[in-house]
Design a binder for these strands. Structure first.
Lengths: 145, 145
DNA sequence: CTCTGTGCAAACACTTTGCAGCTAA
DNA sequence: TTAGCTGCAAAGTGTTTGCACAGAG
């Protein structure tokens, strides 16, 4: 799972970002990188509590957001937003701005027929395939510079 | 926007699914397919209220879920879920089961370097690109048959 | 006429915020 | 010592549920 060099790297990263290295942070980080699925804050909380019985859910939440800010973790695309609906039945792809959360449609023919690997199509029924891009949109880029 | 044939098709679809064709449903449906972005229930509600001043937000919400069930609308991938975190820094793709909401990682080399169309890369800063598949996982498929 | 759909309001789940005490540096 | 972190609790946001009435079939 987390080798000592992983921890060292993590501590170095914290220092570089001006963050303190607290036992809670290390615990949350280790729990996260030790997870294969994509845990929610709650799931992770349950996990961390085994070794850290009185850590609070808020701390886990905040720590995860902090980790995401320094690039030590990611938030799975689109999760946590409000529900969004789509009436467009044609094939199209999404670009999502991480700043303003806007979703921009685009259509790029080559993406329509990307082949699904057999390792997936054999086991699961694929209903929909999309290419999902994340980044910063033109408006937000202007705003930030 | 919505031609009469669109409406006809929609009504036919409702009948087929055993749903009643109510003015509210038609209004919500038309508002949805008349939207280019990916509106949230709230956004759509504001829109529908212009022509239907006393429709309730709940109805919009329920109608959208119903539409999603009969396949007349889609819920944008992953939205509405709780936040999920990802400690895996390597390139990988996600498959999400629409039944149990589980996210399964997979890695398919050809997807790592999919080219971003110039129409996007010229205008936006792309930070992350993922191929997002949605469908039914093996366990849920067994459960449903 | 019957049964589904609607509108309202309360309940819920998850996230964010504010603050006092604690702790890494 | 002191700035930043944690834990608790309260507030906020968005979604779901229960129920009585209205309207589609």
């Amino acid at each position: 799972m987390a080798s000592s060099s992983d921890s060292d790297k993590f501590e170095a990263r914290c220092h570089k970002a001006g963050l303190k290295v607290t036992p809670q942070r290390i615990a949350v980080y280790n729990a996260l990188i030790g997870s294969k699925e994509h845990p929610s804050a709650d799931t992770l909380w349950r996990k961390v509590r085994k070794t850290f019985p009185n850590i609070s859910l808020d701390t886990v939440n905040r720590t995860l957001l902090t980790l995401a800010e320094i690039g030590a973790a990611f938030i799975v695309e689109g999760s946590g937003d409000v529900k969004r609906f789509d009436g467009c039945l044609e094939n199209h792809q999404h670009f999502r701005c991480v700043k303003c959360k806007k979703i921009i449609d685009f259509h790029h023919k080559p993406f329509d027929n990307i082949p699904v690997p057999k390792s997936i199509s054999g086991k699961y029924t694929v209903l929909k395939k999309t290419v999902y891009l994340e980044g910063i949109c033109d408006l937000c880029r202007k705003r930030c510079t």
